[in-house]
Design a protein around this nucleic acid. Structure first.
Length: 655
RNA sequence: GCCGCCUUAGCUCAGCCGGUAGAGCGACGCAUUCGUAAUGCGUAGGUCAGGUGUUCGAGUCACCUAGGCGGCACCA
């Protein structure tokens, strides 16, 4: 007999060998019908699996997250079955559930086509209709290897060969088709449902290693219901509309072209956005006690040899030669330059922490396949800084940085999803003791700032752990913006030192940190976050003064001048077009405020303000409009200052 | 870099079985002065990404190159 403990805490005895479905039936027939999986002591099992031991027991229906993942996994198997039916000779490899769906990797000489995808999808639906029972079988490891080899499934055989000898393996059978799989699965192909769609064809290396052969991966999405599927496809469409490459062109922010792969041509509107961001960040850094520097763009090879980049990073560096035979490299990063400034003259412990910032233009030769709009480029500007400090200052500096970065991200409307602590990678410099210490320091600093980081195992830089800021945008997608990395290595390599209280020379520690990451990428993220509809303080064009008739031209020009004098970025639209047309055009261009001027406004000296996304209007005098828009257009840090000083002066006032 | 797909007017896209280039938007011109998301008419605009080949004939077929897109690998 075995004891099963139900979620409500009640306990019941069952015969050993009872199945989840039988247990469910003992409670209610309807429950047995709905049951697709069970959970025993946290482990997911097939609903028809004979239970050999007792424990905490839960019956899962189709609408649970666990079932959804299993549905996706089932459908990847159905995909593999369909592919092998339609394309005999294709070898299967692996096919897991992933976020929003699943994929399956196949080995086949002939590439699949998009038309094949349609056929495969039809066949998959037939397999679901066939209602093939999905049955778990336990095989001897060696028999399984022999079996899969005999049917020409060499990748499968290789996978099983990785399983320790003597262990049994499980094989799931659906109809005539079998696959090595740990499970669990739903009871039959019908249970997987038809709320799925094959989405893309892609290449992927066997076992994720570029030295291995390339397989063909078929991606799909799968959901518990048709409605969820539709919602997902709709979300995809919405995300596509936000694509920064599309919006960047539509809003005339930037462009890229063939001759400058991975390089951005910033147009005036895009650069306006850039300048706003840069000056905002610069103000925040000034206020946080940073100094700003600028270091050379191109430096002699000798320099990079000393820093270690020539050896480690050479393939990613843009190198050039001069007539005189010098070999130079564009800087791929700013750190070695900053160390030179630190080393210039003598530094004392009194100078620490020294927070050295640079909006540093860097060039990296990224593989062509990695380039992606503004998100991954070859020429970019980091909002970089290095904090030179003593070891006992690491914690406080890191905690302060977390606060600063958090505040800046939230000013840009980006919510934090989590902070990741990236720990020691497999290939690394330094002893385990060093890593224990460094990881503990970063963890303590995060906690000091009130943050519990999510551990990202093995994601650290080769020289030290780091904290990465994972932000969430308006539609829930996450982006990594901002990082802080602890570095004991570079100060050592480049021989940076300061004189301590004891009069002796000491090695400083370096904290590499960025808040936006690269300005290019950050602007890309902002474009997608706001779908181009920037808040007033960021909008490249804040106000368009649009006339209804040419009688209002003179006043419109006067109004535009007055708004500009109040510090706003203003354009005029005096074209001989209907106001409907102008409103539509500027709305599509995501201009936050359209100031409409007709004969009436011109006579009364007023503006009719129309906000993007609303059809109401606000009639204000020119002076009122200039005042209220100008104050609304203040960057968040300046707005806070104004509020604070207003409050301070308010306190002093009597009464 | 690797696998697959794509590249036609400024933009978005049609173009069948190979027969010599189309639309909408935009631009420009004219008319229109019209109160909150598209006024009408007209005009111009193309070495069909580049190259080589097959063919009487190539936007269309084949091959090569480049760029883009989707993944993979990469992102010290």
């Amino acid at each position: 007999m075995i004891d099963l403990i139900f979620p409500d805490g009640s306990k019941r005895e069952f015969e050993a060998g009872v199945t989840g479905r039988q247990v469910a039936a003992s409670i209610a027939i309807s429950l047995a019908k709905r049951a697709v999986l069970i959970k025993l002591d946290g482990e997911l099992l097939d609903v028809d699996r004979a239970l050999e031991k007792g424990g905490k027991f839960e019956i899962l229906a189709r609408d649970t997250p666990e079932a959804l993942e299993t549905i996706r996994h089932d459908i990847s198997h159905i995909l593999a079955e369909a592919v092998q039916e339609l394309f005999p000779g294709t070898q299967v490899t692996i096919g897991p559930a992933i976020e929003d769906g699943f994929y399956y990797d196949f080995a086949r000489d002939e590439p699949f086509s998009l038309d094949d995808l349609v056929k495969i999808e039809e066949r998959m639906k037939q397999i679901v209709d066939r209602d093939e029972p999905i049955v778990r079988e336990v095989w001897k490891r060696d028999e399984a290897i022999a079996h899969f080899k005999s049917i020409g499934e060499h990748y499968k055989a290789e996978i099983i060969e990785g399983i320790p000898a003597g262990e049994d393996v499980t094989v799931y059978r659906q109809g005539q088709w079998k696959d090595l799989c740990r499970g669990p699965h739903l009871p039959s192909t019908k249970a997987a449902g038809k709320a799925f769609k094959l989405t893309k064809l892609a290449g992927a290396y066997w076992r994720g290693d570029h030295r291995n052969p390339m397989l063909q991966r078929i991606y799909g999405t799968a959901w518990a219901s048709e409605k969820d599927l539709e919602d997902y496809l709709h979300r995809l469409e919405e995300a596509e509309k936000r694509d920064h490459r599309k919006i960047g062109r539509a809003m005339d922010l930037f462009h890229m072209q063939e001759e400058g792969k991975g390089m951005v041509f910033w147009h005036d509107k895009g650069l306006t956005l850039w300048r706003i961001i840069e000056s905002y960040v610069r103000r925040r850094l000034d206020a946080a006690g940073y100094v700003e520097v600028r270091t050379p763009q191109v430096l002699d090879r000798v320099f990079w040899e000393k820093s270690g980049h020539w050896e480690k990073y050479r393939p990613n560096m843009f190198v050039c030669e001069t007539e005189e035979g010098e070999e130079l490299s564009l800087k791929p990063m700013n750190c070695p330059g900053h160390v030179q400034i630190f080393k210039f003259g003598q530094k004392s412990y009194r100078d620490l922490p020294l927070r050295m910032a640079e909006f540093g233009a860097c060039h990296r030769y990224e593989p062509s396949g990695a380039l992606h709009g503004l998100m991954r480029v070859r020429a970019f500007t980091q909002d970089d800084a290095h904090i030179f400090c003593r070891e006992d200052q690491i914690e406080e500096e890191t905690a302060n940085f977390i606060e600063l970065a958090t505040s800046i991200h939230s000013d840009f409307g980006l919510e934090r999803d989590h902070i990741a602590l990236a720990t020691r990678p497999e290939v690394r410099a330094g002893s385990d003791e060093f890593w224990d210490k460094a990881e503990a320091q970063m963890l303590a600093a995060a906690r000091k700032a009130g943050v519990e980081p999510v551990i990202a195992e093995g994601d650290g830089a080769f020289y030290a752990p780091k904290l990465d800021f994972v932000l969430k945008d308006a539609i829930g997608r996450t982006w990594v913006c901002g990082t802080i990395q602890l570095d004991y290595v570079l100060p050592e390599r480049l021989d940076a030192e300061y004189v301590g209280e004891d009069g002796q020379k000491h090695r400083p520690v370096m904290l590499h940190r960025a808040i936006c990451g690269s300005l290019e990428r950050f602007i890309g993220v902002l474009i997608e976050n706001f779908a181009g509809a920037f808040p007033l303080w960021l909008a490249p064009t804040q106000v368009v003064v649009a006339t209804i008739t040419s009688d209002a031209d003179e006043f419109a020009l006067k109004a535009a001048a007055a708004l500009r004098a109040a510090g706003l970025r203003v354009e005029t639209d005096l074209r001989n077009e209907k106001i409907n047309y102008k409103v539509r055009e500027h709305s599509l261009a995501k201009v936050p405020v359209i100031a409409v001027v007709g004969r009436r406004e011109a006579e009364e000296g007023k503006l009719a303000l129309r906000r993007l996304g609303s059809d109401g209007q606000q009639i204000l005098t020119l002076a009122e409009a200039a005042n209220s828009l100008a104050s609304e257009a203040n960057p968040p840090d300046i707005a806070r200052q104004r509020r604070a000083s207003a409050e301070a002066s308010g306190v002093r006032e009597p009464g």
